[in-house]
């Protein structure tokens, strides 16, 4: 028992910190992510997706709403954004990370923003 708590203690602590860190996305970061997502020369997600607050959205891909319920695992969401063709080789969605259309940092910001929708 004591062994277990000793072992679990640090893990739980790390988990807690991780959780706090990962859920704590600042409003400024969300705004930055939104900007990248909407920018035609950056993410340009509106070309294909409806996103609340975006003008003239396309309808090639599904509307990006209720993302937490569709992607409980944020890493999977990031993976979809980083390279949609890894999941569906014929996908029309550009491989934003794999082809370096966005930087890793920008992908993080966009993922946080999309995850908040």
């Amino acid at each position: 028992m004591t062994k277990l708590t000793k072992r679990l203690g640090p893990t739980a602590l790390a988990l807690c910190i991780g959780l706090v860190l990962s859920t704590q996305v600042s409003a400024a970061d969300l705004e930055a992510g939104k900007k990248i997502a909407f920018d035609r020369s950056k993410g340009n997600c509106l070309t294909c997706h409806h996103i609340d607050g975006g003008t003239l959205p396309g309808n090639i891909g599904p509307p990006l709403i209720a993302m937490k319920s569709r992607f409980p695992d944020k890493d999977k969401l990031r993976a979809q954004i980083w390279d949609a063709t890894a999941i569906n080789p014929h996908s029309i969605m550009p491989p934003l990370g794999r082809h370096r259309i966005l930087s890793e940092k920008e992908i993080d910001l966009v993922t946080d923003y999309i995850y908040s929708l």
Binding site: C48, L56, N59, I60
Partner: peptide, 12 residues
């Protein structure tokens, strides 16, 4: 991708 898979859809 655009003209066979998605004609009739909107890009922007």
């Amino acid at each position: 991708d655009c003209h066979v898979q998605y004609p009739g859809h909107r890009v922007r």
